[in-house]
Design a protein around this nucleic acid. Structure first.
Lengths: 223, 223
DNA sequence: CCTACCGATCGGTAGG
DNA sequence: CCTACCGATCGGTAGG
């Protein structure tokens, strides 16, 4: 029986196993990153023997790519729905974007980029870059572009930053959010969930309005 | 001859070798992270055989800790000097902070935190957390506190964010800067150096004044 | 400061 | 879908 790497699921059981592997792999990869996850960890978490992974997927990179394909496809659908809500304000949509990404175990951006550059084959790098760019970055960038077009956000020509840079600032800030939130107050009694919502609101609000107190000093418009 | 792990350098040559190992290790760790650097890579880059590392350092973690001790000590000195420049404005000092961290191969924050949580022993985690907190975070936080005290920045009580959260936003934003800057314009003719300065200015400016266009719409003070 | 080497673990394959 | 196993590489040690 030749290896078809899951392209033609003849048995429903075979496809079920493939789904189990993908599900376990997704949880592990998003929590631990690419390098730290071993094929044996994925096998154990999905209840199969390790060599079976190579019946369903060509190698570890192919498994990772398939995980990312499914993950980013779901994210794209959700992010485009949020971006299209023209009745909601720009900050409201951005807050929902961050909240969605957090809910769905968004990956550590710094770790993701590092591994793309240092642990993956060139083809893999390109494939992942494209997925991330078209399915995550672009839907979010559309929200910032809305804001610039409507005059709510400063245009780059008027000393503002580009919609894409806004997206990267939002993603960078929110990707280390759990680290920040856990340090934010050591004497917390409130739930982690509540703290996280507050932190998301604070990040979006800061990105929109900045930290400067306009009630005391007039903003110095440094270009 | 007992292993003293470099605590009592009897020969000048021995100490020189130790310095070479630390220098090579620092370059590799900051570029590739803890896990991806092998003891054999450090040995080759410093011109010694791999087992010699274990004469100067107890193990890989001890070597990493010593690298971080020296690295953060130098950073602390520089950051405190910048923070103390009361004649410079808050945004000017923050810009110099980011510029300094970039110059001295600042590490990828997302990668650093991930490895602290998942690749290090508990003792190591605590040691690194303390170094990072007291030598990097606190000097930068002092600048934000200056800004809040002087009324330039909104206080947390007035709907602003804490000085520490400002620090984490600054560090998160600047730590993925090279990734952002490289995507920012694909048709660039200008030098990478110039692009990076512009990106740093844009990050600090956004953190201070936000992306909202105050000349068109009055800022909606959402708490 | 080196040669020689260890046990563990990795991604992946053979063969059924 | 499994058992059995591979070559490579890892952090670390023995012994001089």
């Amino acid at each position: 029986m030749p290896r078809d790497h899951g392209r033609s699921p003849h048995h429903a059981e075979t496809e079920e196993t493939r789904r189990a592997i993908l599900h376990a792999a997704r949880d592990l990869f998003t929590k631990l990153g690419y390098r730290a996850v071993t094929t044996r960890m994925v096998a154990e978490a999905s209840g199969v023997k390790q060599p079976l992974l190579y019946y369903h997927f060509a190698d570890k990179e192919a498994l990772y790519l398939e995980v990312q394909r499914e993950h980013t496809a779901a994210s794209q659908a959700a992010l485009e729905r949020i971006a299209a809500r023209q009745n909601a304000s720009v900050p409201e949509r951005l807050r929902d974007v961050v909240h969605y990404l957090r809910q769905t175990h968004q990956q550590n951006m710094g770790l993701l980029f590092h591994e793309m550059r240092h642990e993956m084959s060139p083809q893999m790098q390109n494939a992942l870059r494209n997925l991330f760019q078209t399915r995550i970055v672009e839907p979010i960038t559309a929200i910032f572009e809305d804001g610039i077009r409507s005059g709510f956000l400063r245009s780059p020509a008027a000393g503002g930053i580009s919609a894409r840079m806004g997206t990267y600032l939002l993603l960078s800030s929110s990707s280390n959010l759990s680290t920040m939130a856990s340090r934010e107050d050591e004497t917390s009694q409130s739930s982690v969930f509540g703290k996280e919502r507050e932190a998301i609101d604070a990040i979006v609000h800061t990105l929109m309005y900045g930290m400067v107190d306009h009630t005391t000093v007039e903003p110095e418009h440094v270009p």
